[in-house]
Design a protein around this nucleic acid. Structure first.
Lengths: 138, 138, 138, 138
DNA sequence: TTTT
DNA sequence: TTTT
């Protein structure tokens, strides 16, 4: 009934586009999300998770057109679970995330750019709303 | 950096308790989360996802003590990902959810209860905060 | 850019309905949201906030039709701020919340009902999605 | 029971610091949150809300030390409501937001910096966790 | 002006 | 392996 996910992360590669039999566009990509934590020794560690993201319809069209590898995004969506049986007849499942709203937070600097590379190899862009024509508050 | 999950669902079985070498309690359970959607024919369908939940420390102690199979909870947490290699040396991963705040929303009625079973086989309980002594707003 | 609010609370009165010049329906109500906290003496206290909720269009129609005083709801929305000047020319503002998704969690028992009042004076209802025909995950 | 707010915005001035009789630090500031929407003519408009933010204890200390005017932050917190009576004996109330987790997203470029001002007059900084020593996932 |  |  309540199933909500909010993530900030970076695309590990360009989005992939495919189409449902109905003609609806599906755009998928993998999102790298970092977590920082202190280990037992009190030192900061960083861990990265890679989540499978899926989007449909108009949002999928905009994401396929406007996102690319390395972009940092803010994503709101919900958890889903694919279920299947493997060749051995064993039940398998995989969690994925369906995107519902996405904002582009930043793009990595072009290496050949005449712009001075900014801090941490990233160029700041004003957050861009990728949720289209509608009035979306995020 | 932002990694937040909010879910309402029901425990599919009693929580399992184990302990880390440090003595810290770990409580795990599976949460059934329902999704209702319209199929192509316009009829409402229901799909259920089963997510693996993990909790640590004081929250784990309270959840192990106070939750049981069938309880409906509101959970706030974050996504994690376990990674390993199988015997064939292939990389495998599994998404799980670490609970950070939990509220008990309702318990199923005891079948042998002298209480009249309420609507839909569920007894209403006032939402119970399982986040302990601290002042937690959820 | 990100502006998200999630609340569980109860309507303090029946919703009020009005219409914009465009004909669009606007439904407003006040939501009582409780907070429990420990005072300095270590005793649990409860405090109640009353937030002004506003909804528009199709959601407003459903909320005006299906919600009433005392209903407990789960609400997702975003913060807004009304600004005006008073007679003395001083700037004034008031925070309100625009509802984007609403689920009905429970209704208070009718006092004259032939139903046995359930625990805590509340009848449990299966959470009801008030977000209409679309496939909304909450 | 559930009372959660997530915002991205910029500080309109440096934070203010005060102390409770108990010695606990309180840090307050105003956060400017932008909303983009299409007007009736189909043109994008931008509106800005100013929310009052309050923080306590260790988080207040870090925010007082590390935040300043113009910083863009991601904030997680909950809604509160101050209530009082004015001189005329009328009930008044004001919504505010208590910060629970904060991440620094970006700082405006120093005007006298020898750094080339980056895109849109802002310097990108890697998101900084201001939630201290604990392992906070945001 | 407030709900349970 | 699944809850209501």
């Amino acid at each position: 009934m309540l199933n909500k996910v909010l993530l900030i992360g970076r695309l590990t590669r360009d989005p992939e586009v495919r189409y449902l039999p109905s003609g609806m566009q599906v755009t998928t990509f993998s999102l790298a999300v970092n977590r920082r934590f202190k280990d037992k020794g009190g030192n900061w560690q960083e861990e990265t998770y890679f989540f499978d993201i899926e989007s449909f319809g108009g949002l999928a069209e905009r994401l396929g057109r406007q996102l690319s590898k390395g972009n940092q995004i803010l994503l709101e969506g919900s958890l889903r679970q694919d279920k299947w049986e493997n060749q051995a007849g064993e039940k398998r499942s995989r969690v994925k995330i369906v995107a519902e709203r996405v904002a582009l937070l930043s793009k990595p600097t072009q290496p050949d750019s005449n712009q001075k590379p900014s801090y941490e190899g990233s160029e700041f862009v004003e957050p861009t709303d990728l949720n289209s024509d509608e009035d979306v508050p995020f």
